[in-house]
Amino acid sequence: MRRPRGRLLAESVALLCAAAVAFPLYWMVLSAFKPEDEVLSEDARPWTAHPTLDAFRRVFGQQDFGRYLGNSLLVAVVVVVASALIAFLAAVAVTRFRFRFRTTLLVMFLVAQMVPVEALTIPLFFLMRDLGDVTGVPGVGLNTLGSLILPHIAFSLPFAIWMLRGFVRAVPESLEEAAYLDGASRARFLWRILFPLVFPGLVATSVFSFISTWNDFLLAKSFIISATENSTLPMALLVFFKDEGNDWGGIMAASTVMTIPVLVFFVLVQRGLVSGLGGAVKD
């Protein structure tokens, strides 16, 4: 029963905000499709009459760009899946069990989120080097994708556990008791009943691990030293920042390519995300 005038005003404001928020992305995509002389023109126009794929051609023509894209996807997917599974188990433990140090652990998980990751690059470098030297397992150690995957799992776990708690808790305990009465084993309850119920929450959580992994360029820059075939996407983006003048068209095209997978992922999980975040903090 709100006054239509007020609502109209609110909607205009909302649309204006939407336009303002979307503008940087619009400009990114636009510049990616502009011919180079228009991108580097003093007269920046919000449209182009001559869309071209030149910038994308430069990006994909760059050596191994496809491979970097694949590496980035592989790392992100492994991190998302592994951290979701591990966090799920841990979240079950801290919500469904009562044990000594439970609250300490929870506080630890919160504290762990505050660790400035950039500062850990130094100790992690030596850890990865020694892991490779000592274990000799292929795929672990410097210059491997494993050296990116392992730390990112660790970085995303605390937040994931912290968030998943709410979802696990939202599943009524009576359900659990009923399952046991029906003779279900603990494992069966966990994976067949609880897991599907918590899945939307897992999706919402995985958005964060996906983004932080996908974004990373510090670890990629520091750990992938001589095996360039194991580089990831942000390294490819850096190539277009040149001392002799940035190739803005190429940067925008590469940025577009880098943003699209995340956007797709977001749109796919959008519903779960909105309800998920609500669930996580509602309690």
Binding site: V21, A22, V262
Partner: peptide
């Protein structure tokens, strides 16, 4: 508005 916001959210920090 939600889509625009999701777009901004999804954009990697470096881009």
């Amino acid at each position: 508005l939600t889509l625009a916001a999701l777009g901004a959210w999804a954009t990697p920090a470096i881009t």
